[in-house]
């Protein structure tokens, strides 16, 4: 009798627990599926058609991909630009995040809080494109030009935002300026959780300076944060477009800063060639996953 009551109440508890599982998880999972998983599947499917929002879509196989690689020189430029931007701003931004987090972590708590705010503020401020636009203005009204002329370094103002020789470096400086974002905070937090006694034990075991300490103790201890930071850095580097549009316009002069995201936007939201645009999106998914896998593989070997 007693046993029966117990198992009945247990069953009831289990049932209510299963109910609560649905209530807790349901809303998130539903929306996550519709707006995160489904878009990947939709992108792949639509990329195999010639859908243009007006006519019935027809199946075209891999035509869109063939056209992208064989007939679209702007796309080749976009891939090149994206690669240059992400190969430079990705790793450099990542190292900056780590370097600054490490340095900031070495100083006492009060100045540390201040420096953290100072370094993180650019990414909080959402780009400040107006400031950069005026700094790098094309005429001698622009502050950089004015100063360079004042010190007789140049005689004619440099046309920063339309001269293809200068656009890429300027763009990279601006992206790096605001690269100390979530990754930076993650690293500071990671550094603060490393067990202090490991450092003293390491000193006894023959670690001589802060560099050895960094490589043999700190880095392996915060591998989880390093990986999370890498993911944020990679997806950020491949998805760059808004900050470029804000300062250099869209499309940029001679496509000098045309990225894959710009190309996607151009075909998707301007020309409504959805099939073609979705092929671009699918490729971008693929590239970012491959890049992430490679970086995770490399990070796995740190300090081993």
């Amino acid at each position: 009798m007693k046993n029966n009551v117990k198992s009945a109440s247990l069953k009831k508890a289990n049932r209510s627990r299963a109910m609560s599982l649905v209530v807790f998880l349901g809303p998130f999972l539903l929306v996550f599926f519709v707006f995160t998983i489904l878009p990947v599947l939709v992108s792949i499917l639509v990329s195999l058609t010639n859908f243009n929002m007006l006519e019935m879509p027809g199946f075209v196989g891999l035509d869109n991909y063939a056209k992208l690689f064989l007939n679209d020189s702007v796309f080749t430029t976009a891939i090149q630009n994206t690669m240059i931007i992400s190969v430079i701003t990705g790793p450099v931004g990542y190292l900056l995040c780590f370097g600054f987090a490490w340095l900031v972590n070495e100083i006492p708590p009060k100045p540390r809080a201040f420096m953290t705010l100072l370094f993180y503020a650019p990414s909080l401020s959402g780009g400040m494109s107006a400031v950069w636009a005026l700094l790098f203005s094309n005429d001698s009204v622009g502050y950089i030009n004015a100063w360079l002329q004042e010190f007789d370094i140049i005689s004619e103002p440099i046309r920063w935002t339309v001269d293809t020789d200068y656009m890429m470096p300027v763009c990279i400086i601006i992206i790096l300026w605001q690269s100390l974002g979530t990754t930076f905070l993650t690293f500071i937090a990671g550094l603060q959780t490393v067990n202090r006694s490991l450092y003293e034990a390491g000193a006894v075991d023959g670690i001589k300076n802060r560099w050895q300490e960094l490589y043999f103790i700190t880095l392996p201890e915060m591998r989880g944060q390093l990986m999370f930071g890498a993911i944020l850095a990679i997806t950020g580097a491949f998805g760059v477009d808004g900050i470029i549009t804000g300062i250099f316009g869209f499309p940029t002069q001679n496509y000098a800063l045309h990225t894959i995201m710009h190309h996607l936007h151009d075909y998707g939201n301007v020309r409504y060639e959805m099939g073609y645009a979705c092929a671009i999106a699918t490729l971008l998914f693929l590239i970012s996953i491959i890049a992430n896998r490679v970086v995770q593989f490399l990070l796995d070997r740190v300090g081993k």
């Binding site: 996550f32 707006f35 995160t36 990947v40 992108s43 995201m261 645009a277």
Partner: peptide, 29 residues
């Protein structure tokens, strides 16, 4: 519960997508 592991793994996987690339398909949906 059943499927917990696979849900957790899938969510972690999606962090690796360049999220803005999903914007267009989201527009269609």
């Amino acid at each position: 519960f059943k499927g917990r592991k696979i849900i957790n793994k899938t969510i972690t996987m999606t962090l690796m997508f360049a999220a803005p690339a999903a914007g267009l398909a989201n527009y269609l949906i």
